[in-house]
Structure formats: C-alpha cells, structure tokens
Amino acid sequence: MRYKWYLPYLFILLAMVGLFVFRLGPLFFAGGMSFTDWSMFGSPGWVGLENYIEFVKDPTFWKIVWHTISFSLIFVPIILFGSLILAVLLNQGIPGTTTFRAMYFAPVVTSTVAVGIVWRWIFGADVGMLNFLLRTLGIESPPSWLSDRQFSLVVVALVFAWKRLGYYMIIYLAGLQDIPRTMYEAARIDGAGALAIFRKITLPLITPTMFFVMIMALVDSFKNFDIVYTMTRGGPGTASTTLAYYIYQHAFELFQMGQAASLSMFLLVIVGGISVLNFVYKSRWVNTQG
C-alpha cells in the first residue's frame, strides 16, 4: 500500500479529535479545575490544594469513599461468582438453554432507570412485594430497605449486580466454550464427579477469564451513578452516596465545579490504579479474549 505520509493521520483524525477533545482534554482540564474554587456561574480563582485538604479533613468524604468501596465489595464478588455459576449451568448443553440465556440476559438490555424504578417498588417498606413475602414468612417487621441507612447501599448494589450478571455470564460462556469438550469427556471416563471436574478442569482454565471479569466488574462498579440516582438519590442522608453521585451533586446541584473536579480526581486515581493492575496482568487474559 502506498500513501502520502499524512494520510494515516487523516484516517485517525476523528478518533483523535474524540481522544483529545472529549477525553484527554477534559481530563487535564478537570485536573486544573480541581485547584480552583470555580462555581458554575462565576470565574475561577486559584486555591491550590484547598479543595483536596478540605475533603481529606471532612468525615463525610471518607464515609462516601467507604460507600464507594463497599459498593464494589458487594458488587464484584456477586458478579465474579454469580455469573460464573449461571454460565456453568447454561454450559451443560441441555435443551432450553437459549431460552434461559435470553431470560438471564434481559436485565442487561433494560435501562438502569427502568430497573431502578421497578425494584424500588418491590423494595417498598409498606406495600412492597418483598416485605409482603417476608411478612408472610413470619417476619414481623421487615426492614424499610431503601429508607434504612443500614440497607440502602446494599440493596442498590444488589440491584445493580442483578442488572449486570447476564453480561458477565456471556463473557464466561465464551470462556467456557473455549475449553475443549474432549477434556471433560476424558475426565468423565476417568470417573470424575461434576464437582471434581469443575475444580480440576473448569476452574483452572477459566481463571484468566475470571481475572478479566474481576477487572471489568471493578470498573463497572464505579459507574453506579444511574442506579444510585434512580433508586435512592444517595439517601437516606448520605447512606448510599458514592463518589460518582457525590461528583454529580457537587457539580450540578451545589455548582461547586472546582470541588467536584477534585472529587473526580479521587475517582480517577482509584480507576487508574485498577487500570495499571489490568495492564500488568493483561497478558494473562488477552489470549482468551482475542
């Protein structure tokens, strides 16, 4: 292929505009903003590290960091193992698999907003379906899930996991299908039980996929703005407020753009750390995901 030196740059021009104008540019801009006291209306003034110092000293901020981490701690293991179980069940090659797969996948295509609305109704304290079931089972006063500071974050994380399980199930299924059938057959001939097969064959061979899923689920777990917004708006109080929601609140409700930018830097550091982890270990999953 022969071409002028500048032609490749034209080919990547659109992607580069996207990269520099809508990704890297804003990223650096946000970094700069985080050292200012920019409110939405006014003009920015340099305040140095003040925003950061204020947050670090504020117990509410640390509570919110903890909520963000808790959200991931609930979400990631459920995804990691839950979707693996779904995939293994569906990988048995029994009739009806396609139908079940379609049903398990349905929450993935549904918007988070619709998911949040229907689960809010199910988790309603007084006339919600779940509490009706619990009362029927003899639990006198079931919790007020979303209005209870002990439960709201857990419930939101669970619902988000419910929505995302099907997605990771598909990734696992792809990984499982790469395992040669012959290995299972050989093991079965040797008289290995289902559990033994899972432990000795499936698990080791699926580990790279699991690692990949873990990284992806971790990153996914920080994209919790939509579900928090629709289910609790961070409440009661700040009980289910996460960093993503806190950024939104500071920027678009408090109009403290500078502070919001410094919050987004905290989030960036967390996600950046995970990206580095991913990069270091990438060789381990890239083969199975080709």
């Binding site: 500071r149 708006r233 961070g234 409440g235 009661p236 109080g237 700040t238 609140q249 409700e253 408090l254």
Partner: peptide, 26 residues
C-alpha cells in the same frame, strides 16, 4: 438553603437527614 436544609435532589440530606433519623428513633 437547599443544601443545608435538604430539598429537591438533595431532599434527604442536610438537616432533613438528621430530622428523619431522630423521628425514626435511630
């Protein structure tokens, strides 16, 4: 006011958070 009292998108935060917690007996 919206932010320290708790209103609109921040309905359950600010003062509202603690009023509700006290009324809940928490």
């Amino acid at each position: 006011w919206k932010f320290w009292r708790g209103y609109a998108s921040a309905e359950g935060s600010g003062l509202s958070e603690f009023i509700d917690a006290s009324l809940n007996g928490e």
